[in-house]
């Protein structure tokens, strides 16, 4: 049985429907004592970090999630649930759960880059040439390819070029880069799947990414940490 943490996240129902479609038993709860007894937890999310942390604290779910993580219970975070597991978010300047060291930061539009200045005395025939980057739109909304940078059982089915659906303006940046499992490229490479031990979290919406997304949920259901 997978326990879905209810803290008024917008995609809670979509995640529940995806699990039901896959025939995976689940329950939704806002009760910290139910979260403490859970044997698997999905921590969904759509919304803003400040409001999300506010509701988690008000319901006592922040402490329950920290305890579950420490107790080795498998936890899957999605979108905001991937951002507020870090220590801090730039969104609303919010102190977060701190399950992993690091910070959630905002995409910054890239000015069109000019070729780097040449060191004096060097010819330009073999100088590094950068492609001019397209100015990015924020939020990052739509389908983007996810590249696995470190194998993980939840992403075992991915092939190069597989795409997932994203909607976000902030992204998670763990302090320890060995906790990054996958990245995407949007005006530069950024982490989209992070984790440590029994915790795994993805910035993309597994519940809205077609079959490759549903497979992440299936993998989580059978994940043995």
């Amino acid at each position: 049985m997978i326990t879905l943490v209810d803290y008024k996240a917008g995609n809670l129902t979509s995640v529940r429907r995806a699990l039901e479609h896959l025939g995976i038993p689940c329950q939704i709860t806002a009760d910290p004592s139910v979260v403490r007894r859970a044997d698997k937890i999905i921590f969904p999310g759509v919304g803003a970090a400040g409001a999300a942390m506010g509701i988690l604290k008000e319901r006592g779910l922040d402490a329950a999630l920290k305890e579950s993580f420490a107790a080795g219970i498998p936890i899957l975070g999605i979108c905001i649930g991937c951002q507020i597991i870090l220590e801090h978010s730039e969104e609303d300047n919010t102190d977060c759960l701190g399950l992993l060291a690091g910070e959630t930061i905002r995409f910054r539009p890239q000015p069109p880059s000019s070729p780097p200045p040449l060191p004096a005395g060097e010819g330009d025939s073999d100088s590094p040439h950068r492609m001019e980057r397209e100015r990015i739109k924020i939020p990052h909304m739509g389908w983007n390819a996810v590249s696995v940078t470190r194998p993980h059982p939840l992403l075992a089915h991915l092939r190069p070029g597989n795409e997932f659906y994203f909607v976000h303006s902030f992204y998670p940046q763990p302090a320890d880069v060995s906790q990054i499992y996958a990245t995407s490229d949007y005006g530069g490479e950024f982490p989209v799947a992070i984790g440590k031990d029994n915790l795994f979290a993805v910035q993309f919406h597994t519940e809205k990414s077609g079959k490759v997304g549903l497979k992440v949920l299936e993998n989580f259901a059978s994940w043995k940490t």
Binding site: R17, A18, H21, K208
Partner: peptide, 8 residues
């Protein structure tokens, strides 16, 4: 639709 279709 939401029960059967897992794209936005």
């Amino acid at each position: 639709v939401a029960e059967q279709v897992f794209i936005p």
